[in-house]
Design a binder for these strands. Structure first.
Lengths: 140, 140
DNA sequence: GGTTGCCTTCAAGTGGGTCGAAGGGGGTAC
DNA sequence: GTACCCCCTTCGACCCACTTGAAGGCAACC
């Protein structure tokens, strides 16, 4: 199965710009070209992109992803280094999730706090900002 | 209690550059200056920075944080809009955490996979990359 | 009074995209 | 057969959120 850059972009929910960026930076070394020089992607390339998005999404810099993909190309002898890279990324991601949960609880607190103010201060007249300007205020 | 920019940076684990950046961009409007024009932070400023880091850390753009902090300055009448901003941020953060967990399971899979290869292929000779080059390989 | 050291401002650099301009090829419409 | 449309290409510029560097000010110690 083969795909155009647009199809891949749609499939993975990213922009064609990003895909070209990754390709131009050597992270998709096996992408072919058709007679008109258009990029042609197959399922292996898609798999590669999936990994790239996973690693980028968890904060790995492009340069390290390049290195990781180089290791993959080099074969089994690089498994120990790959193992350590993935372990580090695992830990990093756990940290990131923990940090986000922390931030989330701060935000939750604010939401509750504001909800309380709204409920207490203006029990009948609160209208979401998204609806202000429409004739919904019954107390006016 | 008042603090220098360095003390604040250390307390919050960020660079003095970032603090100046936030200040220069109007997100810390109440920071004072001493006789030598150095920034002087108090506990309220610290609280403000804490919120900035929380919102930035959950992906809110600087411009929106500026807007939010403006709303805070404007007083109670802006609570409904703030409420909606925090609700949106809450949702965004939940999504982000979910995405990270997804990525994490991909990474976990890789870690397990590599661990399996290492165990199966080279039961006695695996040495972490961080230790290679030292005379630890018993089988050589 | 010179050096150390922290501060200042302003400008430039970085990472990771994101976008626009300029141009080419291919298919259909006339 | 050429005009038009659409998608593709490359290359260079732009964007955000810092990050860093250069140049200089003030304070305080030796």
């Amino acid at each position: 199965m083969s795909y155009t850059i647009h199809e891949v972009a749609q499939k993975l929910g990213i922009s064609t710009y990003s895909i070209r960026y990754y390709h131009d930076h050597g992270m998709l070394p096996n992408v072919k070209r058709d007679a008109n020089n258009n990029r042609v992607f197959n399922d292996v390339d898609l798999e590669g992109l999936h990994i790239i998005l996973c690693l980028r999404g968890t904060g790995m810099p492009v340069e390290r992803i390049q290195h990781y993909l180089d290791l993959v190309q080099q074969g089994e002898s690089t498994v120990p280094e790959r193992y350590e890279m993935m372990q580090a990324q695992q830990e990093r991601t756990l940290h990131e999730i923990a940090g986000l949960k922390n931030h989330l609880s701060t935000i939750n607190f604010k939401v509750d706090h504001y909800a309380e103010i709204i409920k207490t201060h203006q029990p009948d007249s609160f209208v979401p900002a998204s609806m202000r300007g429409t004739a919904t205020n019954q107390t006016a």
